[in-house]
């Protein structure tokens, strides 16, 4: 990468790649500097914004990462990876959890056959389970019921072949040697 920039200083993707490599090495501060410089040169490049946001999020700077994720999502609205990054970032901040769930649902709806949708479904299911555990004062929670219906629908969609053999066998309820009380 070093030689690439020496040969061609305007090779934009090299700066992104350097930023990503630094981020991989957990050298977040250096990665941030490189990617911010690249973002200044290429303000409309979604990849720069996405990687800058991801670097900031990895460093725990979620508040700072959020506007970059939003910019990346508006520049590349059809990129599920960007949307998932935005959702993860929102999910990491209590004040934005509701919006995070909306983005996850959006990913499931728009990219149903992708791995991103599967990941988003798992996160939504976990969120639903967590909500179920919350104390309910009176009546039922519509969102909890919705979650249960969704889970049941998913279960019925699974083919029998995918379920495989039941991991347990039915056992006799009456212990050997005991006489059944049912006549």
């Amino acid at each position: 990468m070093n030689k690439c920039l020496k040969l061609d200083l305007s090779y934009d993707n090299a700066a992104i790649a350097i930023g990503v490599s630094l981020s991989k090495l957990k050298r977040y501060d250096e990665a941030e500097v490189v990617l911010k410089a690249a973002a200044k040169i290429q303000p409309d490049n979604a990849l720069v914004k996405q990687n800058l946001a991801a670097t900031l999020a990895r460093a725990g700077k979620y508040m700072e990462a959020l506007p970059y994720f939003r910019q990346a999502a508006s520049l590349a609205p059809d990129n599920p990876a960007v949307l998932m990054g935005l959702a993860h970032c929102l999910d990491s901040m209590d004040a934005h959890r509701k919006e995070a769930l909306k983005v996850y649902k959006n990913v499931v709806k728009r990219f149903p056959d992708s791995q991103f949708a599967e990941d988003a479904k798992q996160i939504l299911n976990r969120a639903g389970q967590a909500d179920l555990r919350k104390v309910v004062d009176d009546g039922y929670r519509p969102d909890a019921v919705e979650y249960m219906i969704g889970a049941m629908k998913r279960f019925t969609e699974i083919r029998v072949s995918k379920l495989g053999v039941w991991p347990w066998r039915s056992r006799r309820l009456v212990r050997p040697g005991w006489k059944s009380t049912i006549h």
């Binding site: 070093n2 030689k3 993707n13 790649a17």
Partner: peptide, 18 residues
Amino acid sequence: CFNYGVALSELGRVEESL
């Protein structure tokens, strides 16, 4: 140079890629 760097990084040789 760029693609060699990306390949190194993808193969886990991140320091070397820089």
